[in-house]
């Protein structure tokens, strides 16, 4: 989609349906909270964003907090467009956060403000060193558990977003919320700071469970706010509009 004068440059996610919803993609350098309960496809969507970036020649970095990256790669959907040479060539890099914690000596369950600065600085240095233009942290919720207070979480996400944005990096922070949550984040802070919120959910309709996606906010672009149904396929994430069937709810 051609940009009009004044439009922000886009970072196309490569997920055709999502790029249509966002009128071309995520505004470049935005930090987006990709949130939802378990089994809704957050990690798959985030990975696809990075793989498409790497295919387009943008260095992409996946920081795995909860799952060992080797296990993650073993369980990856057999995407037809995924080529392991992207990993071997360093275009797509996986880093395990627990190893970073250990190297930085951040082994305590509760990080101090100084340690938060150290962590932000280490993540930014890594992104700079690798020339990353796309970054995913999966999940930010797990990192937040080490920060404990709202002030520290706010401080961490603000500083990290600014550092990554200054590097020209577009970031996705994967958030986890309980299935019955009415909030977009576990700590209530992440959603307020992020430039965008993409909500993934399981929706029950007459006994059928549908995976849905909805863009709640995205600074720097117009976007659809409708709910879409998605499928995780070897061709990537596919989206179609949720059928309303005359429902008024």
């Amino acid at each position: 989609m051609p940009l009009k004068p004044g439009d922000r440059e886009r970072c196309a996610t490569g997920v055709e349906g999502l790029d249509t919803i966002l009128y071309g993609g995520i505004p470049r350098t935005n930090t987006v909270l990709l949130t939802g309960s378990c089994g809704t496809g957050k990690t798959s969507l985030a990975l696809e964003f990075l793989i498409h970036g790497a295919i387009r020649g943008e260095n992409s970095l996946f920081i795995s907090v909860t799952e060992n990256s080797e296990k993650l790669l073993a369980n990856i959907i057999p995407y037809r467009f995924f080529d392991r040479t992207l990993v071997r060539s360093g275009r797509l890099v996986f880093v395990d956060m627990p190893i970073m914690y250990e190297r930085l000596g951040l082994t305590k369950p509760d990080l101090s403000m100084e340690e938060i600065d150290l962590l932000v600085s280490a993540l930014a240095s890594l992104a700079k060193e690798l020339g990353s233009k796309r970054l995913v942290i999966d999940s930010i919720t797990s990192v937040c558990y080490k920060l404990k207070t709202s002030e520290k979480i706010r401080d961490f996400i603000l500083k990290l977003s600014k550092a990554l944005s200054d590097l020209g990096c577009t970031s996705i922070l994967v958030g986890e919320v309980p299935a019955d949550s009415t909030s977009y984040s576990s700590f209530g802070v992440e959603e307020a700071i992020a430039d965008g919120i993409v909500l993934m959910a399981n929706m029950e309709r007459r006994g059928d469970l549908l995976r849905t996606l909805q863009v709640i906010k995205m600074r720097g672009t117009m976007h659809s706010r409708a709910k879409y149904v998605l499928d995780l396929t070897p061709m990537g994430v596919l989206l179609v509009p949720l059928l309303k069937g005359g429902s008024t709810q």
């Binding site: 309709r205 059928d208 149904v229 596919l238 179609v240």
Partner: peptide, 12 residues
């Protein structure tokens, strides 16, 4: 009844 999934499979 999963008509969206029908559309998604056709799309795939």
């Amino acid at each position: 009844t999963m008509l969206e999934n029908l559309m998604l499979k056709v799309e795939y």
